[in-house]
Lab assay of single mutants.
Amino acid sequence: MLEGKVKWSNSEKGFGFIEVEGQDDVFVHFSAIQGEGFKTLEEGQAVSFEIVEGNRGPQAANVTKEA
């Protein structure tokens, strides 16, 4: 699992980007967020995730919010 911080997200469009130190930003779709209820990410929020190869390149999977 990698750790990063949410660079920005748009809940209306359903995606955002995660900033990882020393690496390119990672695309995240809201379907990759683990948990119940409305899935949102806040700018600056710490997250853990895996990287998978998506249709348009690397993207985050199994995203969990850190406490």
Score class of each variant (00 low, 15 high):
1 M>W: 12
8 W>F: 09
14 G>K: 12
3 E>A: 14
31 S>H: 06
34 Q>R: 11
8 W>E: 00
57 G>I: 02
66 E>G: 14
32 A>L: 03
23 Q>S: 10
54 G>I: 05
31 S>G: 07
1 M>R: 15
50 E>R: 12
23 Q>H: 14
62 N>K: 10
46 A>P: 09
32 A>S: 10
57 G>W: 04
60 A>R: 00
16 G>P: 02
31 S>C: 09
23 Q>E: 08
65 K>R: 11
17 F>H: 02
58 P>I: 09
22 G>A: 04
62 N>R: 10
58 P>W: 10
48 S>N: 08
24 D>P: 15
12 E>V: 13
58 P>Y: 09
28 V>W: 15
57 G>K: 03
37 G>F: 08
30 F>H: 04
3 E>F: 15
4 G>T: 02
15 F>C: 05
65 K>W: 11
9 S>Y: 15
54 G>M: 07
2 L>W: 13
59 Q>P: 04
66 E>S: 15
41 L>T: 01
3 E>H: 15
40 T>Y: 12
63 V>T: 02
5 K>T: 11
2 L>V: 11
21 E>H: 12
67 A>M: 12
28 V>E: 02
24 D>C: 14
23 Q>A: 10
37 G>Y: 07
9 S>E: 02
18 I>C: 03
17 F>S: 02
61 A>W: 10
39 K>F: 08
50 E>N: 13
9 S>M: 15
13 K>C: 12
61 A>K: 09
43 E>I: 15
64 T>F: 13
14 G>V: 06
43 E>G: 08
48 S>H: 12
30 F>E: 02
27 F>N: 01
13 K>H: 07
29 H>F: 08
25 D>M: 06
20 V>L: 09
65 K>D: 03
28 V>F: 15
52 V>D: 02
49 F>K: 01
57 G>Q: 02
63 V>H: 02
63 V>S: 02
21 E>Y: 12
22 G>Y: 05
41 L>D: 01
64 T>K: 14
28 V>N: 02
38 F>Y: 12
12 E>R: 13
11 S>N: 12
34 Q>W: 08
32 A>G: 05
64 T>Q: 12
55 N>K: 14
45 Q>T: 11
48 S>M: 13
36 E>S: 12
10 N>H: 09
24 D>I: 10
53 E>L: 14
25 D>I: 05
14 G>Q: 11
20 V>S: 05
16 G>S: 04
54 G>Q: 04
27 F>A: 01
59 Q>E: 11
6 V>W: 07
41 L>A: 02
52 V>N: 04
19 E>G: 09
